[in-house]
Design a protein around this nucleic acid. Structure first.
Ligand code: ZN
Length: 230
DNA sequence: TGTGCCGGGAA
DNA sequence: TTCCCGGCACA
């Protein structure tokens, strides 16, 4: 029921003085919008940073990024706990929460301070990304794909939604079956039966067959990629 | 020849 | 439901 919290990405690692493991290549990304998040940064608000595991039915919350990385690496990815050569895959499976302690009592008074529409970093399927960061290493994309399931839905029940759970949100061909239609003719009107299929790189090409665990669920199941949408 | 993914199908 | 794959249209 923590409402006043923002989530964003783990950038690089260790914003806490915790034990930190040196990352290989990727230093940071998404800084621009992270800076914007510094509004009310006048030190009045006391926020606590937490790290929440996004694995399907885990939801574990830890207070340090390194701890979370270790959790994901060992529990979910089944890797050695002390394998410093983490290719950053864990970053993808957890998110950082800024739990605003004050907002808990504040209620809804200061809710939705930022635009409720698309308050997520757009750096995800970065074909249009302004050529920033992201070394030639593994381009671990960023989570949160602005859940497209309910555009005009009520705000608040919009969970993080990573790649997991290949939920096919698109289900239009069954809307208002008119009762005055005893003999429904075969529906075949679309003029564009086959899309030219955009040649954007999808999980398979991006990560390669040797990193199939990093593909989005859909790609793994040979379905339409839901991480790098066209 | 490799990629994206629809349409199945197994567990 | 989750997960996998045959097979086909593209590139
Ligand atoms: Zn994908």
């Amino acid at each position: 029921m923590i409402m006043g919290m923002r989530l964003r990405l783990e950038i690089g690692n260790s914003e806490h003085g915790d034990e930190e493991e040196d990352e290989v290549g990727m230093g940071m990304r998404l800084e621009m919008w992270q800076v914007m998040d510094m509004r009310v940064g006048t030190g009045i608000n006391s926020t606590k940073v937490m790290f929440k595991c996004l694995w399907k039915s885990c939801g574990k919350v830890l207070s340090s990024s390194s701890g979370m990385q270790k959790h994901i690496r060992t529990v979910h990815l089944g890797r050695k706990a002390d394998l410093e050569q983490s290719d950053g895959e864990e970053d993808f499976y957890y998110t950082e929460l800024d739990v605003d302690v004050d907002a808990l009592t504040d209620g809804l008074s200061s809710l939705t301070p930022v635009s409720p529409t698309s308050s997520v970093p757009p750096a995800f399927p970065g074909p249009e990304a302004p050529t920033l960061l992201l070394p030639p290493a593994l381009p671990i994309p960023d989570l949160a794909l602005a859940s497209p399931c309910s555009p005009p839905g009520p705000p608040g029940r919009c969970h993080v939604h990573t790649d997991h759970a290949y939920q096919d949100c698109r289900t239009p061909p069954r809307p208002p079956l008119s009762p005055s239609s005893p003999t429904p003719p075969p529906p075949k009107p679309p003029a564009v039966p086959r899309r030219p299929r955009g040649d954007a790189k999808k999980c398979r090409k991006v990560y390669g067959m040797e990193h199939r665990e990093m593909w989005c669920t859909a790609c793994r199941w040979k379905k339409a990629c839901q991480r790098f949408l066209d």
